[in-house]
């Protein structure tokens, strides 16, 4: 299944540097329509008012975490099928389990490389 790389991607992280890194890595694999948010609440507002095909979110943010954002997305009738990749330094098994139970599409542990990001995106969008 061909991936529509013209889709809007929302990246969410409280570290501006990380947002910039992910944006550049996405650009290198031809995802050029990228928007940013620095916490779950800002991301949720953008998701509800916009049209996105993929969310790539950090977990540890305030006031709304990535997991809370994921739960809100899955509880929203319009957004519930949104592909959602968690990119986080939280690498304990219980974190991954909690994210999976909340409905995460894939999970990347920081620090990550470009190949991992590309592979997970293709996997998630290939199944979307």
């Amino acid at each position: 299944m061909a991936i529509d790389k013209a889709m809007n991607v929302l990246i969410v992280d409280d570290y501006k540097t990380m947002l910039r890194i992910i944006r550049n890595l996405l650009k290198q694999i031809d995802f050029n329509n990228v928007d940013e948010a620095t916490d779950g609440a800002e991301a949720l507002a953008k998701l509800r008012s916009g049209s996105f095909g993929l969310v790539i979110s950090d977990w540890n943010m305030q006031p709304m975490t990535g997991l809370q954002l994921l739960q809100e997305v899955r509880a929203d009738a319009r957004l519930k099928s949104m592909p959602f990749i968690m990119v986080t330094a939280e690498s304990k098994a219980e974190n991954v389990v909690a994210a999976r139970q909340a409905g995460v599409s894939n999970y990347i542990v920081k620090p990550f490389n470009a190949e991992t990001l590309k592979e997970k995106i293709e996997k998630v969008l290939g199944h979307a």
Binding site: M18, I21, N24, L25, Q28, A89, P111, F112, N113, A114
Partner: peptide, 13 residues
């Protein structure tokens, strides 16, 4: 540049 972007994620960690 990809390698550099990857390496720069150290700052987050």
């Amino acid at each position: 540049t990809t390698r550099i972007y990857e390496a720069c994620s150290f700052q987050d960690i």
